[in-house]
Amino acid sequence: MERLKGKRVLITGTAGGQGEAAQKLFAEQGAQVIGCDLRPGAAEATASSLRDNGYDVRGYDVDLADPEAARAWVEEGARALGGIDVLYNNAAGFGFAPFPEMTIDLFRHVMRVELEIVFNTTSPAWGVMSKSGGSIINTASYSALRGISPLGQVAHATAKGGIVAMTKSLAAEGAANGIRVNAISPGFVKSPATDAAVDEAGRQWQLNNHLIQRAGTGSDIAYMACYLASDESGWVTGQNFSVDGGATAGWR
């Protein structure tokens, strides 16, 4: 079962959560993977454990909010792999506050660490992928698709809504060069990031609004990403896939 055999893959945010799960699944499915994370040594730690099992995985420290650092990581990855077949923009920071408490500084911070970082990696990857095509996978959120009052998500929802719109425009521009671009909108997924950002009351509120009343896992999202990275999705582009336990489908 090597659905990604020979694929050259860049994944952001591989130190834990959804990115770590995707890195493991992609490697198991035959891909060469280069990951990155903001925390020093964290991406290489998860990569090293996979290399010990014979997989071709490397990890680097990168601040993706720095356009030059993001560009250097993409360009070095392309050189090391001999090209890029898949770019998975998984990483994101966060910032939440009720709108009356939302400052312009916090709003701009969220745009920088959730929306701009997707541009920062996609821009340098675009020229490489234009030569041979490939798949770009962006990470949005179900917060981009429905308003969620209790969690103070105006900035987060705006950034993720921008990713959905960016995905569609990039798909239109990339089609002529064989670049497919899709997004995944997770619901509430248990991860180190959500554990840090959401208190118990917010967590319970979200779970109560999922038809399948459990938190998602990194693997739930990784399997969708694997499909979008693979040739199985060769006629799929410009789409946003909700993997959210039914949160955007209806009420239980």
Score class of each variant (00 low, 15 high):
residue 250 G to V: 08
residue 19 G to N: 09
residue 224 M to A: 15
residue 237 T to I: 05
residue 237 T to K: 05
residue 17 G to T: 08
residue 99 F to S: 12
residue 80 A to M: 02
residue 119 F to H: 07
residue 1 M to A: 15
residue 29 Q to F: 10
residue 152 G to C: 01
residue 117 I to V: 10
residue 162 G to H: 09
residue 117 I to F: 00
residue 50 L to W: 12
residue 183 A to E: 10
residue 78 A to D: 04
residue 77 G to S: 00
residue 195 D to C: 07
residue 82 G to D: 04
residue 2 E to A: 13
residue 200 E to K: 02
residue 229 A to G: 10
residue 215 A to T: 07
residue 146 R to A: 15
residue 194 T to R: 02
residue 251 W to K: 14
residue 36 C to M: 13
residue 55 Y to G: 12
residue 94 F to R: 01
residue 121 T to L: 03
residue 68 E to G: 03
residue 214 R to Q: 02
residue 74 V to K: 03
residue 165 A to L: 14
residue 196 A to D: 07
residue 110 V to T: 03
residue 219 S to E: 15
residue 220 D to H: 05
residue 4 L to S: 10
residue 158 T to V: 12
residue 80 A to T: 02
residue 51 R to H: 08
residue 110 V to G: 01
residue 64 L to C: 08
residue 74 V to F: 01
residue 26 F to N: 08
residue 47 A to W: 14
residue 193 A to Y: 06
residue 221 I to S: 09
residue 83 G to M: 00
residue 40 P to K: 14
residue 81 L to K: 02
residue 41 G to R: 13
residue 44 E to H: 13
residue 96 F to K: 00
residue 165 A to T: 14
residue 160 K to Q: 09
residue 65 A to P: 01
residue 105 D to Q: 03
residue 38 L to S: 08
residue 232 E to Q: 08
residue 27 A to P: 14
residue 102 M to I: 04
residue 233 S to K: 11
residue 209 N to F: 09
residue 21 A to S: 15
residue 101 E to Y: 02
residue 72 A to V: 08
residue 179 I to M: 00
residue 24 K to P: 10
residue 50 L to P: 14
residue 157 A to Y: 12
residue 60 Y to G: 03
residue 227 Y to W: 14
residue 104 I to G: 10
residue 10 L to T: 03
residue 204 Q to L: 11
residue 109 H to P: 01
residue 185 S to W: 13
residue 248 T to E: 04
residue 91 A to D: 04
residue 241 F to R: 06
residue 82 G to R: 06
residue 220 D to P: 11
residue 220 D to F: 04
residue 27 A to D: 13
residue 215 A to I: 05
residue 203 R to Y: 12
residue 242 S to T: 14
residue 59 G to Q: 06
residue 252 R to C: 09
residue 89 N to R: 08
residue 248 T to C: 03
residue 228 L to Y: 09
residue 147 G to M: 02
residue 186 P to H: 09
residue 190 K to L: 14
residue 4 L to P: 12
residue 100 P to A: 13
residue 204 Q to K: 15
residue 130 S to M: 13
residue 193 A to H: 11
residue 111 M to K: 10
residue 178 G to F: 02
residue 31 A to N: 05
residue 72 A to L: 05
residue 170 L to W: 15
residue 84 I to G: 05
residue 35 G to W: 10
residue 56 D to F: 05
residue 163 I to A: 03
residue 184 I to D: 07
residue 6 G to M: 11
residue 213 Q to V: 02
residue 230 S to E: 12
residue 103 T to M: 02
residue 129 M to R: 01
residue 223 Y to C: 06
residue 201 A to H: 06
residue 62 V to G: 01
residue 16 G to M: 12
residue 37 D to C: 05
residue 107 F to Y: 15
residue 60 Y to C: 03
residue 235 W to Q: 04
residue 107 F to I: 12
residue 229 A to Q: 09
residue 160 K to P: 13
residue 67 P to D: 01
